[in-house]
Amino acid sequence: MKIQMNVNGQERILDVPPLRRLIDILREDMGLVAAKIGCGEGECGACNVLVDGEAVSACLIPAVQIDGCRIVTLEGLATSNDDALAALHGAFLEHDASQCGACIPGIVMTCRGMFDDLRNRRPSEAEVRGLLAGHLCRCTGYEAIVRGILKWLEMKSEP
């Protein structure tokens, strides 16, 4: 089937089977490999991307459900001079939040998707841990990731 979507700001029309997974379309058909295939079952969050502004697991979404949608991957954030991404990048560097890096693109997309909700208030550490509920870090580096996100939110709540 033909689907039309906007990927990282560019209009694309693809001819794909209706149940092809969004993650396979991004990685194999479009060469956008920041999102990773971890579990393929919605457990690990490594494939998270933004669909119409919301972080979702791309391994669970069939092609037929992204027709007409706006997709943003980490590559799209990286090339769009996204201030929120730059700040998160800095906070993660400062706290050594990224180890092997497999989980980080998904976590970044989850954070970015929640940014508008989070920017006007200071969520608790428990809330940040709740935000990470769908992410598995195979290096088990959660403490540094949580510290990095808290630092990021502190930076964003400054005027």
């Binding site: 919605g42 969050g45 998270n48 919301e54 972080a55 979702v56 697991s57 669970l60 979404i61 989850t110 998707g113 929640m114 709740g130 935000l131 509920a133 769908g134 992410h135």
Partner: peptide, 12 residues
């Protein structure tokens, strides 16, 4: 809802 799957799944 806070204990329902993950934020990414709750969005879908």
């Amino acid at each position: 809802c806070q204990h329902f799957a993950s934020p990414a799944i709750r969005h879908r």
